[in-house]
Design a protein around this nucleic acid. Structure first.
Ligand SMILES: NC(=O)c1ccc[n+]([C@@H]2O[C@H](COP(=O)([O-])OP(=O)(O)OC[C@H]3O[C@@H](n4cnc5c(N)ncnc54)[C@H](O)[C@@H]3O)[C@@H](O)[C@H]2O)c1
Ligand SMILES: NC(=O)c1ccc[n+]([C@@H]2O[C@H](COP(=O)([O-])OP(=O)(O)OC[C@H]3O[C@@H](n4cnc5c(N)ncnc54)[C@H](O)[C@@H]3O)[C@@H](O)[C@H]2O)c1
Lengths: 216, 216
DNA sequence: TATATATTGTGAAAAATATCACATATGCAA
DNA sequence: TTGCATATGTGATATTTTTCACAATATATA
C-alpha cells in the first residue's frame, strides 16, 4: 500500500490484464484464483501479480488465493471502471466507425455519446443511435455534454489542430490513433494507440529469428 | 554495437517512433536531425535516443546530428521494413475491414494478401482487391501463399482455436486484437493490441487526477 | 489439537532500463 | 590554423522494475 503517484505505468497496464482475466474466471464460475492462476492466464509471474496487487492493499487469503468477484470489483474501482465516463469520438472513418459500434468499451463504463466529422455526407447521420455532429460545433458540444475523454481517429495531419480545440474545451484525456505525436499541456492525459509499433516489432522478430549474432 | 539478443523490448518499440519521426522530417525537407530534435518529436530524452541508436552502430556526425534519409533507411532495415512481408487477416468484421483497407501498413512492407472469414455472406467477396476466403481453407492457403504474419480480428472465444490452426500452418508471427491471451508455442512471436488497456489507463489517470494521496 | 499443505504479502537482492556527464569529433568562421 | 560552438557515443551512475525467498497465515484432515 503506497502513494498512488509512485505506482508504475506497467503496473497499471497489468491491472487491466488482471481485470480481464478475472472477468473470464468469474464467467467460468470460479470463486477464487491464486496469483499462479492469474499469472498463467496473462503470461506473467505469480510474484509480479502479488507485487502489483500489494501496492493497493491486500486482497487475498493466505493458503487460498484471491476472491474472484471481490478482486475484480476492487481492480475495477482502482481503474475507475465502476463509474461511467462520457466519451466523444472524432473522425468517423473506417477505424472510427468500427470503434463507435464496438460495444465492449461501453460495458466498462466508456459511453460514446458524440461522434464528430467534417464530411457533410456524414454529419447529421448516426451510428447505433450516436449522432455524428459537425466538427465546427466541437467546442460547445464537448462542454455541453460534459465529455471526459476523447478518442481521435482522424488523418494524421489534422490531429494536432483538433487536439488543440479539444484541450480548449477542457477535456483532460485523449486516446489518439493518428500516427503523430500530439503536443498537449501537462495536465492533459494522452495515450497513443500505435498499431505500427506492434507490426514493426513482429517484423523485427521475424527478421532476426535465425540471426542471434551481431547486427550488421 | 552489441548482440542483438540483448536489445530490449522498449528500445525496439522506440525505433518505430524514430522511424516515424524521421519519415516526417524527410517529408518536411530536413537533411539532418539531432538527438534533441528526435527526442522532442517523440517526447523522449536526447540521451535515450543516442543510447538506443548506439546499440546498432554509430550513425551520426558529432557537432551535426544524424542524416535523416540514411538513418531512416538504417532503422527501416533494422526493423525489417526494407523488405516485404506476406500478411493474412482473419475475421473481416468491423475492425478487420478497417485494417484491410488501411494503406499505410502496405507502405511499410506489410502486404495483406488474404482475408479469411466463416460468414458465407462474406466469403467470395473482396476488399480493395483482397479476396475473402473460407476459414476452412486456412491451412492450405497460408502455406501456399507463404504467409509470414497473421492479423487476428476475430471474436475472443474463437481466437485460440484459429490461432492453433495458424500455428499448425507454420506461421511464426501473430498480431492479435481479440481480448484474450493466446497460448502459442515458444517459437511463435505474438503481440497483442489491447485498446482497453489504454482506455483503462486514461480512466485511472482521470480518476486520480485530484487525488495524489494514498489509495483507499 | 496437531500436522501437512497451500498461498499470500513483502523486504531484500538482482536485473533491466534510463540518465548523466564528458571525452571526442566535426563544422565553421576568422 | 586556431578556436569556438555543437552534438555524438558511451562508460559510469542512478533509478526503476522484476524476481527471489521466506515468514506469516489460512484451510483441511485426522
Ligand atoms: N484504418 C485503420 O485500420 C487504421 C489503423 C491504424 C491507424 N489508423 C489511423 O487512424 C486514423 C483514421 O483512420 P481511418 O482509416 O479511419 O481513416 P478514414 O479516412 O477512413 O477516416 C478519417 C475520418 O476523419 C474525418 N476527418 C478528416 N478531417 C477531419 C477534421 N478536421 N475534423 C473532423 N473529421 C475529420 C474524415 O471525414 C473521415 O471520416 C488515421 O490517422 C489513421 O492513420 C487507422
Ligand atoms: N471493433 C472494434 O473497434 C474493436 C476494438 C477493440 C477490439 N476489438 C476486437 O477485435 C475483434 C473483432 O472485432 P469486430 O468489432 O470487428 O467484430 P465483428 O463481429 O464485427 O467481426 C468479427 C468477424 O469475425 C468473423 N468470424 C467469427 N468467427 C470466425 C471464425 N471462426 N473464423 C473466421 N472468421 C470468423 C465474423 O464473421 C466477423 O466477420 C474482437 O475480438 C473484438 O473484441 C474490436
Amino acid at each position: 500500500m503506497q502513494n498512488i503517484r509512485k505506482i508504475s505505468d506497467s503496473t497499471i497496464r497489468r491491472l487491466s490484464l488482471y481485470y480481464r482475466a478475472l472477468s473470464n474466471s468469474e464467467k467460468d464460475g470460479y470463486f477464487t484464483v491464486s496469483s499462479q492462476d492469474l499469472a498463467k492466464k496473462e503470461r506473467l509471474t505469480p510474484a509480479q501479480v502479488r507485487k502489483d496487487l500489494s501496492f493497493f492493499g491486500s486482497f487475498g487469503t493466505r493458503g487460498l488465493g484471491y476472491p474472484v468477484k471481490e478482486l475484480k470489483e476492487k481492480i475495477g474501482s482502482i481503474l475507475g471502471l465502476n463509474r461511467s465516463w462520457n466519451v466523444a469520438l472524432i473522425g468517423v472513418g473506417n477505424l472510427g466507425s468500427a470503434l463507435a459500434s464496438y460495444k465492449e468499451f461501453q460495458k466498462q463504463g466508456f459511453h460514446i455519446k458524440l461522434l464528430f466529422d467534417n464530411d457533410p455526407k456524414k454529419i447529421g447521420s448516426s451510428i447505433d443511435g450516436i449522432p455524428i455532429l459537425d466538427i465546427k460545433q466541437i467546442g460547445t458540444q464537448l462542454k455541453q455534454n460534459k465529455i471526459d475523454l476523447v478518442i481521435m481517429t482522424l488523418p494524421g495531419h489534422t490531429a494536432q489542430g483538433v487536439a488543440e480545440e479539444v484541450v480548449r474545451a477542457g477535456v483532460k484525456a485523449i486516446l489518439n490513433f493518428a500516427p503523430v505525436s500530439l503536443k498537449v499541456p501537462e495536465d492533459v492525459f494522452l495515450r497513443n494507440e500505435n498499431m505500427a509499433i506492434e507490426l514493426e516489432y513482429l517484423s523485427f522478430c521475424l527478421k532476426n529469428r535465425n540471426n542471434p549474432g551481431k547486427h550488421a
